[in-house]
Amino acid sequence: MAILEVKHIGKHFENTKVLEDVSFELEEGSALAIIGSSGSGKTTLLRCLNFLETPDSGTIAVKGNTLFDADRTKAENEKDIRTKRLHFGMVFQSFNLFPQYTALENVTLAERLLAKERPDFKQNKKAVLEKINAHGRELLAQMGLSEREGHYPHQLSGGQQQRVAIARALALKPDILCFDEPTSALDPELTGEVLKVIRSLAERKTTMIIVTHEMAFARDVADQVIFMDGGLIVEQGAPDNVINHPREERTRQFLARYTQG
C-alpha cells in the first residue's frame, strides 16, 4: 500500500485557483519529482502537505490514516496538528535556518523540545541530551558537515546551509521528506553538493517529494515524475516517460525550454 495518498486536493487564494483536483500516491522508499513552470502550484502543494496551508477540498492520508479531510473541517487543536506535521519534513528553498543557533543546535532543537515534554526528562536529562546530540552529529556527518557543527548559519556557504537544513528536517525521522526547489537559491557551483546528498538519501530509500527545476537530476533520482501546470497535474509517470517521451503537448513545451538550453 502507498505510504502517502493525496486525493482531489483543491486550493484557492482569493480569486485565483492554485490547485485543482490534485491526486497522487507515493510508495514507501520512493522519490517523486514535481516539475512545472513558475506559478503552477508546486510550492502550495508542499505547503498543504505540511499543514502550512489548508486545502479547500480533498484528503491526505499517510500509512492509511487520514490526516486531513476537507469535508470534516473541525477546528483542530494545536497538539493534533503538531503530531500530524511530524509525518512530513520540509526543506525550504531559502533554507530558513535559525540564525542564532549553531548548525548542531539547528538540527537538534526540535528533538530537544520534544524530549522536554516527556515526563521522564528531568531524571535522565543528561543522557537524553547526549543521545540527541549524538544523533545530530550523525546526521551532520551524513551531510558531510562534521567539521561545521559549531558554525552559525552566516558562517556557512549556501550549500552548507541547505545541507544543515536537510539534516534538521531528517532529525525527527519524518515518513516523507519534502524539498521545495532545494537548489534554486544556490550558485551553480554549490548545487552539486546538495543534489549529491539528496541522491544519497534516495539510495538509502528515503521517501521524498522533490520540487525541482533540475531535469537531469529528476530523471536520474526520481521513481516517479509529476508535471504540473496551472494547478493541475498534466502528466505523471516514470521519469523516462514524462521527461524523455512526454505524451502531452504542454509537457513537451515546458521541457523544450530546458533542452534548448
Binding site: N50, F51, L52, E78, R82, T83, R85, L86, F88, G89, M90, F92, S94, N96, L97, F98, L109, A110, L113, L114, R168, A169, A171, L172
Partner: peptide, 17 residues
Amino acid sequence: PAGQREAGQVLGMTKSQ
C-alpha cells in the same frame, strides 16, 4: 521573516516555543 516561523511549525513546535 515568515520562513522562520514556518520552519518552526514544520518541526512540530508550539506557538510559544
